[in-house]
Design a binder for these strands. Structure first.
Lengths: 93, 93
DNA sequence: CTTGACATTAGCCTGTAGGCTAATTAGGAA
DNA sequence: TTCCTAATTAGCCTACAGGCTAATGTCAAG
């Protein structure tokens, strides 16, 4: 699933917001929301596939970490939709 | 439908990219893609509901125009997911 | 090896996004 | 009015996202 689609779900955006403060394990993330744990696992999987987070096992826990660069790239693509063909680099003329 | 969800579909993002060069009418947009016209009408409706475009009738045509500010806001929200709690405003220390 | 906690996978169900065709509305021209 | 073109709305269908419960896998501890 691509980053835009991954970002379309409010819970997944909230997860990213939690993660910006530092890495967290699956249980902590799941506990912070109303959804069942397996549901959160699904969201985390989606985020991981989109490259927005990374996962790493640490003992019995699995630690999720925000991947800022993908998020920045995605934001840049949005800004490009506005500016890409309008202001450009001033290369023309 | 919210802006993030609206942006999740590739055709809708392409429509926005077309629109950044200037306003276009429904028919021109529909003709530029493989989808049937009513399908494109649906996408345009979604974009309009998200505030990403505006529509205005001009004779028999309906002209669609990009609303850059919503797109910029949306991009800003993404960047905030990265920086919002990390770098903040430099207020601390 | 058994137990217990952490997390994912498997399986099922429901709602809705996204596609099409056909019908309808809106506006200009004859 | 009548007709033609532009665009939307209505209705239907299929596929898949997103939720749950139950079962399974994984690791550390005893």
């Amino acid at each position: 699933m691509d980053a835009f689609t991954a970002l379309a779900h409010p819970v997944r955006r909230e997860v990213l917001a939690m993660l910006r403060k530092g890495p967290l394990c699956s249980g902590d993330i799941a506990a912070a929301f109303e959804v069942a744990w397996p549901t959160m696992t699904g969201h985390l999987k989606t985020l991981k596939e989109a490259g927005l987070v990374t996962a790493e096992r640490d003992g019995t826990s699995i630690v999720y970490r925000l991947n800022a660069s993908i998020l920045e790239d995605t934001a840049a693509m949005l800004l490009d939709l506005v500016a890409g063909g309008k202001k450009a680099k001033g290369t023309k003329t």
